[in-house]
């Protein structure tokens, strides 16, 4: 088996382990490249018949391309799609201009909590990768969360030889990370090999492309001419540029000025 086969087999093994243990399970599908790869692997694991729901947390601020992609492929792949929205907060006008943190909390975290509560999910499959989160070995494939979604990373049981923990009382749900051992480059190589569809925003148009996609107001494109997967892979191999996302920090600034004034600094 080559490198991608190994990655794939490991992920499929984990997905099957998770489903064996939890029937009340769902996959989180942000419609980004990683979670779409995850959905692809789930389809492979279950021979095209995904036996549990796929959840999209919709903040109402997603790119229109994301909604179109979701509708098209959810239908094509015959997914049990659940769209989770914090309707109350959306109606009350919550948005990034009220503070990015508050907005994410209300429209993402709270919406997810509500969805978990409503459907009683005991486990969630997520497409996170270890290379997003540092090279330290603190992540686990099976990671328990309490009610407040907190993760006690200082005292996790070990994971070895593909043996994973089982859910305990007091643990609200378990997050399962079948893509933990993949890198961003692996994902693109696999997308290319398998022909996995991805949202067109990833490909350069007019000298810019999105490296990650989410809510329209909080994403900014990077300068790039990579309009094919090959070019993206090439870009990732050669780039040594890192870039802070150009998100607005106006709220934080205003708050900070006010605090610094109160402390007598200004």
């Amino acid at each position: 088996m080559d490198h991608l086969d190994e990655l794939e087999s490991r992920s499929i093994y984990i997905i099957r382990e998770a489903y064996r243990q939890f029937k009340d399970i769902a996959a989180l599908w942000s419609i980004g490249k990683d979670s779409t790869t995850l959905v692809w692997l789930i389809r492979k694991a279950f021979y095209g018949k995904v036996p549990f729901p796929v959840v999209h947390i919709d903040t109402s601020y997603k790119f229109k391309e994301i909604y179109a992609f979701r509708e098209k492929w959810a239908k094509e792949w015959n997914l049990k799609l659940i769209v989770g929205r914090n309707e109350e907060a959306i109606k009350a006008g919550m948005g990034p201009e009220r503070g990015k943190l508050q907005c994410c909390t209300a429209l993402k975290t709270d919406a997810l909590k509500m969805t978990i509560d409503k459907y009683g999910f005991k486990a969630l499959l997520l497409g996170i990768r270890r290379d997003e989160h540092g090279i330290r070995a603190k992540e686990r494939y099976f990671s328990p969360r309490n009610r407040e979604f907190q993760w006690n990373y200082k005292d996790q049981p070990p994971e070895l030889w593909d043996q994973y923990k089982t859910k305990q009382e007091g643990e609200e749900h378990i997050r399962v990370h079948p893509l933990l051992h993949w890198t961003e480059l692996d994902i693109w190589n696999y997308i290319k090999r398998e022909g996995i569809p991805v949202v067109e925003l990833y490909f350069a148009k007019g000298g810019r492309r999105y490296r990650s996609i989410g809510c329209e107001p909080c994403c900014s494109p990077i300068p790039s001419d990579a309009d094919t997967i090959d070019k993206i892979v090439e870009e990732l191999k050669t780039t040594k540029i890192s870039e802070r996302s150009g998100r607005a920090q106006d709220k934080e600034r205003a708050y900070m000025m006010q605090k610094l004034r109160a402390l007598g600094y200004m």
């Binding site: 290379d131 480059l185 490296r211 540029i241 890192s242």
Partner: peptide, 14 residues
């Protein structure tokens, strides 16, 4: 640190 904040876009680092 950069990686854990999701700032780094370089994949060559691991």
């Amino acid at each position: 640190e950069e990686r854990s904040q999701g700032i780094t876009i370089d994949t060559a680092q691991t």
